[in-house]
Design a protein around this nucleic acid. Sequence first.
RNA 1: GCGCCCGUAGCUCAGUGGUAGAGCGCUUCGUUGACAUCGAAGAGGUCUGAAGUUCGAUCCUUCACGGGCGCACCA
Length: 715
Amino acid sequence: MIEEKKAKLDKPYNPQATEKVIYEHWEKSGFFNPDHLPARHQKPFTIIMPPPNANGSLHVGHAVFVTIEDLIIRYRRLQGDKTLWLPGADHAGFETQIVYEKKLEKEGRSRFKLEPADLRQEILDFTLGHKKFMENQLRLLGASCDWSREKFTLDPEIVKIVYQTFKQLADDGLVYRGDRSVNWCVKHQTSLSELETARREQTDKLYYLKYGPVTVATVRPETIFGDTAIAVNPQDKRYKDLIGQTVTVKNPLGEMSLPVIGDETVEMDFGTGALKITPAHDANDFAIGRQHNLPTVEVIDQYGKMNDRTGKYQGLSVLAAREQVVADLTAMNLIEKTEDYRHAVAVCYKCERILEPRIMPQWFIKTKPLAEKAIKAIQSDKITFTPENYKKIVLHWLVNIQDWNISRQIVWGIPIPAKLCAACRDGFVDLDDKISNCPKCGGAVTPDPDTFDTWFSSGQWPFAVLDYPDGNDYRQFYPTNVMETAGEIIFFWVARMIMLGLYRTDQVPFTQVYLHGLVTDAKGQKMSKSKGNVMSPIDLAERFGTDALRLALIIGNTPGLNTSLSENKIKAYQHFANKLWNISRFIVANTDGLKRNDDFTAYTEADQKLITERQELLKTVTDELDRFRFHLAGEKLYHYVWHRLADEIIEDSKQIFQAGNRPEEKSRQQFLINTLADLLICLHPFMPFITEELWSILDEDELLMITPWPKPNLA
RNA sequence: GCGCCCGUAGCUCAGUGGUAGAGCGCUUCGUUGACAUCGAAGAGGUCUGAAGUUCGAUCCUUCACGGGCGCACCA
């Protein structure tokens, strides 16, 4: 049997043939599940996997998180912890809906022509298909997560917890529904949170309009039909006397009477210091309008077209209307001058179309009270960040947090459990479908057709997946230990998990946040489909071996910073795997079937020194891993294995084995076999497949994945 | 406007308060019983610039320049 295994060493290492078998072996062992680990594993250690979006293939960003999290989990498992790595999949509301809409477009269909229930079912089928696909890809990358506990963001038990949180927030007065200026995407036909808006610099015309007694500067003359006031700064001597008056202004559709109001937020130095106020189509104007009880007059519809209040302009797109209005104003001699104006406009982070501010009734969460708790927890280091500068970044965001719009006008998501009253425009949380008349005005109610922002549910992920509040897992594994994810989603996800976790469970959801950067191509450029420089982790793993890919993603990857990946780099680590394979072949062939033995003492003086050196390495590597400095731990192991053990110690051993001095030979043999064993353990979190395979060839009883981590006992 | 990060060998990047490191690339030589997915030797850097702290700075502080990113309601 063992001879058969050793015969494997005569051939080069073949990751393609080995990895699948090894993974099946691990999965069958049951050790991915903390409940099935040997009894010596007592101390719980938990990582909740950031659930990948179940709408496509894994990309290299996924490979990074799988590699790092698997590394941490395997390391803690070797250290004897009761490790739980809980996998999941995200329905990814808006993101998936967009992916699916593109698919519909290709097929010449449109989501707006489908019944919501049918569309939902179609996307569900699509998502569940991808979820399966994705799970297999995670296996391919070696993820040692507990599949028996896997969760999906639309699982009924998750939805239940999300609903309870919504209810509790409502009961605590932290949810409100109201007409607010929201960021409306004309293409996607939904509102977005402020995080889902991007900014784009562009140059527009700034028009100076003769507007009654004043001149106002605006980039959006087409909205004048929705103006309900003129605002000036109360400190502004030029306009002081006008405040409180009602003035008559002309536009191409006739005349309007507008009050002149004083508001501190008007900048005296910008434009003319006088500002036209359009509460319905500008977020700032909306805020000013609320201050002064101004009416809102909508002139643009949900498709970005001028509506029936705009006379001859009705039906024109915003840009076409602007052109026409400017032409007409010019003809009326109402345009004083025009300037080029460079500014940042809010755009949809997905389609990059300019967002149209609209007044809509939406569900909002009052975030200030939630943020306060989070700020306290972070400031008191109940949660620590790697790299540390993210502490500042997240605190800054929390301090300046805005209320959170959690309503999305898309079907793919968790339906908002509420009833809406058409009469008084209010909404009421209704988990049990009990409300049939408006509690406020008695009018008829209808179910809210909207769904939650995905991040509202994923913000509750750590406690939701552990069966809060009564589950065994919740008691045992919460708060979790490490939240490892992309620095990019620090606000979207991490900050919200902290807020909602503290709100619901009164505990931090995790004590350590580890953030990784972006993976760029060999030139340091962001990977994107349009650039054609996207690398598929699955393809790379198949070509070079998963272990090689994992090492390439770990070594040289500093927390929080971008890391570049190239085939050359992966190839280098493929060579390293080969090196390790050949070192093992040499050692096995030259140690007469010796097994590792920690009780052996008859070492030569030279070998004693080598042992000390090895133990120093172990100590350093352990230390670096404890400090989340995986890139350094990996590099040190790499260097020792190749340039110390192979280049020097093994070369030196050849002489010893030729000389034929038995005690010296014996000493060196035992040293080599013990060293190989220690190194396989230490390398296992980095390159799990080849180390497990070599371990089996060494004829050890237990699987390498649960073998105790070597304890360096330095004098 | 405010903030964060980066600026180290040809390229991609580590790293440290005490005469600079890796991988890839390059040059020369070697080697077929662990490994050519190899070995040995080598070329190559005033660690962006300036000032300061220090016995000593690539590393700490300040400023400048260059690059990337985030946040921000001046119409």
